[in-house]
Amino acid sequence: LVRYRTISKIPQITLNFVDLKGDPFLASPTSDREIIAPKIKERTHNVTEKVTQVLSLGADVLPEYKLQAPRIHRWTILHYSPFKAVWDWLILLLVIYTAVFTPYSAAFLLKETEEGPPATECGYACQPLAVVDLIVDIMFIVDILINFRTTYVNANEEVVSHPGRIAVHYFKGWFLIDMVAAIPFDLLIFGSGSEELIGLLKTARLLRLVRVARKLDRYSEYGAAVLFLLMCTFALIAHWLACIWYAIGNMEQPHMDSRIGWLHNLGDQIGKPYNSSGLGGPSIKDKYVTALYFTFSSLTSVGFGNVSPNTNSEKIFSICVMLIGSLMYASIFGNVSAIIQRLYSGTARYHTQMLRVREFIRFHQIPNPLRQRLEEYFQHAWSYTNGIDMNAVLKGFPECLQADICLHLNRSLLQHCKPFRGATKGCLRALAMKFKTTHAPPGDTLVHAGDLLTALYFISRGSIEILRGDVVVAILGKNDIFGEPLNLYARPGKSNGDVRALTYCDLHKIHR
């Protein structure tokens, strides 16, 4: 019993810090008490220290592992850092350059016999395009090294910054494609005289377009951006097909006994025919423009016929181009109408809503002055909100995010209106959640004399007048207030005048 009563005193000691020596009952000389009392004092002292730490809000209350900052290894790049964003855009520009100039170089340097010394005699450094290609190869190699040090988000939505895990993730992902696209074939085969082989191998750079397509997928929600990307894709495919079309004609031209190829026909049409040795002929500019003209006309199913396939190889390629053109029509131009419709969806919704308003007016036989006010209010409210119901949009977000959005939407009023000066951010967040926005066209009466005042109004834009009878008592403008002081009276009061809008007004109100 003594032991039980001794232990039962522990909660009292913990909360009230009572010393055991003052209790005459606990001072009985028993061996059990002498053993338990020192333990009680020690526990009391420890609990006292913990309570003191909690009340003082000291940093040592938290466990040590929670006080440590997340460790980022040296030379690790955050995937959302500004440097990584700028670097990704730079790589994107280099990939676009590669997609345009690599097929052009591979096709127009394929057994090209233009006048001038061969590239091997001039030297590697004197070729501007080769120098640019070398810079692109170096940048792609540097990009691989950067990807080995860039964080990523795993399946659990955690940012991984450990170098080993980053390397394994990159090896399992895009490393092989990036490595093949970054191989400097110019340096590996330079001086061997195989410019045709170098041009063909350099087309491996186009593998990076797969990554670019995935990154550009984030802009699919913007109709104008999608339309622009589709047109660029169409032009890029036409450019690639033009390079292939020229390569076919250029390879067949020296081996044909009869002059029936499209390059021969082009030379005869523009007065620059090929001679018996295969030299001469149109310039590279004429060849490229004509090839691009043929691919565009074939892809769009126009086909004027002034550039036509004559050999079997050219006919087979033309059939493939027609098939590609039909697929592009289905996948690209078939979506253009939907994209344009999405661009004008706001206008369509406006006309639909206006039609419903006019049908309501016609069905209920609203008189002319009231009908005009109804239409003007709808037009003004639509121009202010673009038909978007803010309350319906915010309803799907958590309250903390709703408060931040409301604070942002009402920031101008909260910053410049005098009653809100000096208020804490928590108070402003709470008030912003209570605001209701209303609009009024010129001549609209917001409050009639004798109406119950259940709200306090803040003028965000425009001006109003307060009338008693036919006498203008006051004219209020931006950041002015009218209405009933909230919670100042037990019952809502009545208006002693009319409140009429002089201009288009936007008002925020808080109800009782």
Rank of each mutant, 00 (worst) to 15 (best):
E64S: 06
Y65F: 06
Y65C: 14
L67T: 13
Q68I: 06
A69W: 12
H73T: 11
T76R: 01
I77E: 01
S81P: 01
F83Y: 15
V86Q: 01
V86Y: 02
D88E: 05
L90P: 01
I91D: 01
L92S: 04
I96D: 01
A99W: 01
S105L: 01
A107T: 09
E115K: 13
E115V: 14
P117V: 06
E121Q: 11
E121W: 07
A125F: 15
C126D: 01
Q127W: 01
P128W: 09
L129Q: 08
A130W: 11
I135D: 01
I135T: 04
D137T: 08
M139T: 05
F140A: 01
F140G: 01
T150K: 01
T150F: 01
N154Y: 05
N156H: 10
Y170D: 01
F171Y: 04
F171T: 05
K172T: 08
K172Y: 06
W174F: 10
I183Q: 03
S192D: 09
E196F: 05
I198K: 06
G199Q: 13
L201T: 05
K202D: 01
A204T: 05
L206R: 01
L209W: 01
R214D: 05
R214I: 03
K215R: 14
Y219I: 11
G223Y: 05
V226F: 05
V226Q: 13
F228D: 01
L229C: 09
M231V: 05
C232Q: 01
T233Q: 05
F234V: 04
W240I: 03
C243E: 01
C243T: 01
I244R: 01
I244V: 08
A247L: 05
E252Y: 04
M256V: 12
R259V: 04
W262Y: 01
H264E: 03
D268T: 11
Q269D: 01
K272W: 01
Y274I: 03
S276P: 05
L279T: 09
G280Q: 01
P282N: 01
D286Y: 01
K287S: 08
T295F: 01
T300C: 15
T300A: 04
S301I: 01
S301M: 05
V302A: 03
V302R: 03
V307R: 01
L323Y: 03
L323S: 03
S326N: 01
M328K: 03
Y329W: 03
A330C: 03
A338D: 01
L343W: 05
L343Q: 01
Y344E: 05
T352C: 09
L355G: 13
L355Q: 13
R362M: 01
H364K: 01
H364M: 03
P367T: 05
P367R: 08
N368P: 11
L374Q: 01
E375F: 09
Y377C: 11
Y377S: 13
H380D: 15
A381T: 13
T385R: 06
N386R: 12
I388C: 13
C400F: 03
C400K: 03
L401R: 02
L401V: 10
D404I: 01
D404R: 02
H408Y: 08
N410Y: 07
S412I: 15
R421Q: 13
T424L: 02
G426A: 07
L428Y: 04
A430N: 12
L431K: 03
K434M: 04
K434F: 03
F435V: 07
T437K: 11
T438I: 11
P441W: 09
G443I: 01
T445M: 09
T445G: 02
A449Y: 13
